[in-house]
């Protein structure tokens, strides 16, 4: 840890607003990029990124300086994303239940709008491909999503992922492989 980082941490622990602003401005793109890749939605990503920094403000005393600050920040971010994924899944289930109830009452309501099919030729276009990939990542279960995003999107090393997730090296490697193969299936389905 550099001297500047130590000084910044000391000021953060003293609840110095200017130090906190410096911290947010330095790390906001990194945190937002991770929340966006994990959640696939800018509004949700922004909301979770805010909560991450608020947690950092509240729990900065618990950072023991045994790991890099960025690793700790990633850990806080991943935990917030996992919680939001669970919350969104519960909300989706509840909405789905309400939809099913409505469908029973009215047969016409059961007709759901067909999802526009992705044409493979168009899907190769940049923005479309990115959207398709983002959707495919969003369909992975939470543990697989974390590993694919950290390793294959954020380009972190296995050692860093071990520190962030607290999982052993071997578990990460085998789970990562399964996550990649699951992602492949999702991509094929989208195409």
């Amino acid at each position: 840890m550099t001297l500047r980082e130590r000084m910044l941490l000391r000021r953060l622990r003293e609840r110095d607003e200017r130090a906190f602003r410096e911290l947010v401005e330095e790390h906001r793109d990194k945190v937002f990029n991770l929340t966006y890749r994990m959640l696939g939605n800018r509004a949700e990503a922004e909301d979770v990124a805010q909560e991450v920094f608020i947690s950092v403000f509240k729990t900065i005393e618990t950072f023991r300086e045994e790991s890099k600050f960025s690793t700790w920040l990633y850990r806080v971010t991943v935990n917030h994303c996992k919680n939001r994924i669970k919350y969104l899944a519960r909300r989706h289930d509840r909405d789905q239940d309400e939809l099913d109830e409505a469908a029973e009452q009215d047969a016409a309501a059961a007709v759901t709008a067909p999802r526009p099919a992705l044409r493979p030729d168009r899907a190769l276009e940049g923005a479309q491909t990115e959207r398709m990939l983002q959707e495919a990542i969003g369909e992975l279960d939470e543990e697989h999503r974390v590993l694919v995003v950290l390793r294959d999107v954020e380009d972190l090393s296995i050692e860093e992922i071990c520190e962030i997730t607290g999982l052993p090296d071997g578990t990460i490697k085998s789970r990562l492989h399964r996550a990649r193969m699951a992602l492949r299936k999702k991509i094929q389905r989208h195409l």
Partner: peptide, 18 residues
Amino acid sequence: GIKGKKEGAPPELTSKVT
């Protein structure tokens, strides 16, 4: 394709957090 593409945070994020 998305590895190098970084999604920048909205500039007002800092003020919103504080």
